[in-house]
Nucleic acid binder design. Structure first.
Length: 722
DNA sequence: GACCTGCTGCGGGCTG
């Protein structure tokens, strides 16, 4: 046993013996070194199942054991309740024989448990950002008693936080908390899928003086089995007919423990509904589950339990709800429908299979509508298949993962934190409030003038009230927002109708169909018996057959490097060993199409007189920027009739017959000129995207949109290659 | 824009 082992607290050493761990993992040894020998923050970036949470907790618990804190000693922040419950069980197990209490705190935890912590603030607290916000607001005067001697802050799955307002919210909370306690707890961030460590380190360190150490962990050779297959779907299909595509996936998962990932809820519903039909026809047992955001907690739990059950086969179709680190036991195979949206998501999903030594087994099944005989050039390109290959290659060749860029103008969060600070403290002078808000690291790019504009506006609409003494307090309109319990979350809640079969909750839907109509949920078909619009509930009965499904699908945000690699897939003469027969054929055919059309040499092609197509090979943000450039500056000069396209793959443009030859030159010239992002946002726009954007003055929203949702620099860099 | 994630404090009625 290693030196690190010898330095662990005795109860931890005993635990390790009792569980027959033969050695500490590399990541655990590295984490011990940093925690024991330095005073730095720690970023643990290691593959899934490498024992990251133990790596964080073993040395932290040792230090708390040797030198107990007078208050809560370590704070663990996790993105979802299920993960916190999971970690709570594991930590309880580890701490059984130690004198360190562990508490979990989120919306589902009983008030009595919370009261125990408030009475005896010691040990470890595991919490969500939303519950932490409620503590900051409602227990402001007790924070010193609770957290005055806090030593460590552990943040799990940080890739799920960085780059979102929820991640910025955490940084604000830590800043507010430690400013009050006048301490500098050490931070430990955990993630398996980080592309750019320095960006993650910057995020973790925000607002503190300590450096971050990210130990280099030798990942070791992991056996990975990948296969990609491709299907063309017929355009006019009989809904009730099971297709070859569905049969193929059915057989891949048959009698196995298998997780099927899709990019939207509709696909999870559709595939499980088909599987049940096939299973019925073949007299096979129903081992099928659906897991997504609109499935009730109890049905999700049932799916998780079935997957954890060691011996019986079970198949669950899920969206990213099963991507995070909840333990779902040993899986034999992961199937991905269509292409993943990012390398990060691919790795997160791959990490669900092949735990504990076994080879990871992941199958990709791309499906595209069969191009009609009159299909245009861009419609003949198998975009899903290309994206799938590109993402796999970026990982295999370079171990590249998308870097996560910080938000520059998190204005909705600025409103939230301003109101939260006011609610917590009662009243503040304008200068003090401004100083406190602007000292929060996520608002580094916000100027005094910007904030002044926002505060004046909030006073105008009575979210903030100025007292006769010139102090600021929450106004009447603001009270209505802050007083709601939904205030604690910085993302909006989408109120949906609860679907009930008698007393059993199935899940929820956005818009209930009329009484007598049918819809699909949890892989089954339901008929509406009654809709209660006041209680927002739908009562249903189960029926046979397949019904249309309600959610829409989309393409998400894709990085420019993925598009660039897709282009290379079309141009290079390489065979990828994981391509199955139909995928191989499909790729060969599209490489041929590219050569015949000249797409290998140009980005803009004329389809017919007065109609052309642009292939920008840029990610979603640069594509959006180009779309605005075309609309704002090219419509008149090139007599453009219409611009349409499939983001971020191509644009189809109808323009005056003689103008095609000027199109490329026009775009290149525009990009060489001094165009600023602000030129691409019109003075009449009010891009309200985040939860509290509606309370932000429109000129600021436009500025934020230009900074965070457009990227002129990247557009210029890409166009320069044309 | 897809996909997700989260949530207080109370009062009333029931059980042991």
């Amino acid at each position: 046993m290693s030196d690190a082992f010898n330095r662990l607290a005795p109860f931890i050493q005993e635990y390790i013996y009792a569980h027959n761990w033969t050695e500490l993992r590399a990541v655990q040894i590295a984490a011990c070194k940093v925690i024991f020998d330095t005073d730095a923050h720690l970023l643990i970036a290691a593959a899934t199942a490498a024992g990251k949470t133990e790596a964080a907790f073993l040395p932290v618990l040792t230090q708390l054991y040797e030198n107990p804190a007078n208050t809560i000693g370590a704070l663990y922040i996790g993105p979802i309740k299920a993960l916190i419950n999971d970690q709570f069980e594991r930590l309880n197990d580890l701490l059984k024989s130690a004198d360190i209490p562990v508490y979990h705190w989120h919306g589902d935890v009983a008030q009595s448990r919370k009261n125990q912590l408030l009475k005896n603030p010691q040990g470890i607290l595991q919490i969500t950002p939303e519950s932490l916000e409620s503590l900051l607001i409602n227990r402001n005067s007790e924070l010193m008693r609770l957290f005055g001697d806090l030593r460590f802050i552990i943040i799990d799955e940080i890739h799920a936080f960085i780059g979102s307002e929820r991640g910025c919210q955490i940084i604000c909370q830590l800043q507010r908390l430690t400013k009050l306690t006048q301490t500098q707890p050490r931070r430990i961030g955990l993630s398996a899928t980080l592309g750019d460590y320095s960006l993650a380190e910057d995020w973790l360190r925000s607002g503190t003086e300590k450096p971050v150490i990210t130990p280099k962990i030798d990942a070791g050779k992991r056996q990975v089995k990948l296969a990609v297959e491709h299907f063309y779907l017929k355009n006019e299909i009989d809904e009730s007919e099971v297709t070859a595509y569905e049969k193929y996936i059915f057989n891949l998962s048959k009698s196995r423990k298998c997780l099927i990932f899709a990019n939207n809820r509709t696909q999870t519903e559709s595939i499980i509904s088909s599987f049940r039909q096939i299973a019925r026809e073949q007299a096979l047992p129903d081992i099928y589950h659906v897991h997504h955001g609109s499935i009730s907690a109890s049905l999700r739990q049932a799916a998780e339990n079935a997957m954890r059950e060691p011996n019986n086969p079970a198949v669950t179709a899920a969206t990213l709800t099963l991507e995070l680190g909840i333990d779902i036991g040993h899986l034999e195979r992961v199937i991905q429908l269509e292409s993943p949206l990012s390398v990060a998501s691919f790795l997160q999903r791959l990490g669900r299979t092949g735990r504990r030594g076994a080879a990871a087994d992941m199958r990709f099944i791309c499906a595209e509508n069969e191009p009609l005989s009159e299909a245009s050039l861009p419609e003949q390109i198998p975009w899903q298949l290309l994206q799938c290959i590109a993402i796999i290659q970026l990982y295999l060749e370079e171990r590249w993962i998308e870097p996560i860029k910080p938000i520059q103008y998190p204005l909705s969060l600025l409103y939230h934190q301003t109101m939260s600070i006011l609610a917590a403290t009662g009243e503040l002078s304008p200068a003090t409030l401004a100083k406190q808000v602007l000292s929060l690291p996520p608002f580094a790019a916000i100027s005094q003038e910007d904030l002044k504009l926002i505060l004046r506006y909030l006073i105008d609409i009575d979210h903030i009230h100025r007292t006769e003494q010139g102090k600021l307090i929450i106004g009447l309109a603001g009270e209505k927002i802050v007083g709601k319990f939904q205030f604690y979350a910085v993302f909006p809640d989408n109120p949906e109708y609860v679907v009930k079969q008698a007393a059993t909750e199935i899940g929820s839907i956005v818009t209930p169909p009329p009484v007598g109509n049918q819809f699909a949920l949890a892989g089954r078909t339901w008929e509406v018996l009654d809709v209660d619009f006041r209680k927002k509930s739908v009562s249903v009965k189960q029926v046979d057959g397949k019904a249309t499904i309600y959610w829409r699908g989309g393409s998400g945000t894709i990085h420019t490097r993925v598009l660039q690699r897709m282009r290379q897939v079309l141009l290079e003469d390489i065979e990828y060993s994981y391509l199955q027969d139909k995928a191989q054929l499909c790729l060969e055919k599209s490489r041929q199409i590219v050569q015949n059309s000249g797409l290998d040499k140009q980005n803009i092609l004329q389809l017919e007189k007065g109609k052309c197509c642009i292939f920008p090979w840029m990610g979603t943000v640069a594509y959006r920027t180009l779309e605005r450039l075309l609309n704002s500056f090219c419509r008149e000069s090139l007599e453009i009739n219409s611009i349409s396209g499939v983001s971020p793959y191509y644009f189809t443009i109808k323009l005056a017959k003689d103008k095609f030859k000027y199109l490329r030159q026009e775009i290149v010239l525009l990009c060489e000129q001094r165009i600023s992002p602000e030129d691409l946002v019109s003075a009449s726009e009010a891009p309200e995207i985040q939860k509290y954007d509606e309370f932000i003055p429109h000129p600021l929203l436009r500025k934020a949109f230009a900074k965070d949702y457009l990227d002129i620099l990247e557009l210029k860099q890409q166009v320069a290659k044309w």
